[in-house]
Amino acid sequence: MKRLFFVLVIVVTLVGCQSEPDSLKLFDELVVSTNYDTKAVFGAYTTYAIPTDTIGFVSNTNPNDTILVSRADNDYYPRRVLERVMSNMNDREYTRVGRNENPDLGVNVYVVKDFNLFQQVVYPNYYYPYYYGYGSYYSYPYVNTYAYNTGALVVEIVDLKNVTPDNKVKVIWNAYMGDVYSTIDLIDQSTKAIDQAFIQSNYLVHEN
């Protein structure tokens, strides 16, 4: 009888143990967080510049910033991501121009790894010392790290129309989408997240 009692103790103990949500359900959509400069007049910008097949890559574990480059096949991640950003920008009546054609806006797209993005508030209004486009990611304002792999896809819009006298550029919109290291379908979830970032930013539109 005592044995039965102790078996039941174990069974009930196990039933009562803490559990966490099903990871398949947790990871099937990226969290999409957008922030904007409340003083920016988004309707006043007309043109933007964005690369075709290169996105940035920033990692705490690899201090040498690098880039992700599309391979020849169209299905590769950077290209699919950039195309979706461009598609949304075009839908919002912004016109893509070359980087040497004096764009109003610069669009940065990059993946950050091991950065604690969601635990630390990162609002627009921060300035980059200079805008070189891609490969100049040495001054991001977040530094904390997780002990495990975590990462976010970041889309960032900088104001090239109002460069400061000392040549600084201001970030006026950003979107953090994570976690890109725990996805079930990375490309599909990333492109849907980009769409969602624009959906929840209805102020981001050029006004004729």
Partner: peptide, 29 residues
């Protein structure tokens, strides 16, 4: 001891200067 949990479908929460969209699970231990 008891555990309560519930899945909440995707929802957008507005913040002072942006928004965050996600589905989520609420738990109480």
């Amino acid at each position: 001891w008891a555990q309560y949990d519930q899945y909440k479908p995707k929802e957008t929460f507005e913040t002072e200067s942006g928004a965050i969209t996600t589905d989520y699970f609420n738990y109480i231990y």
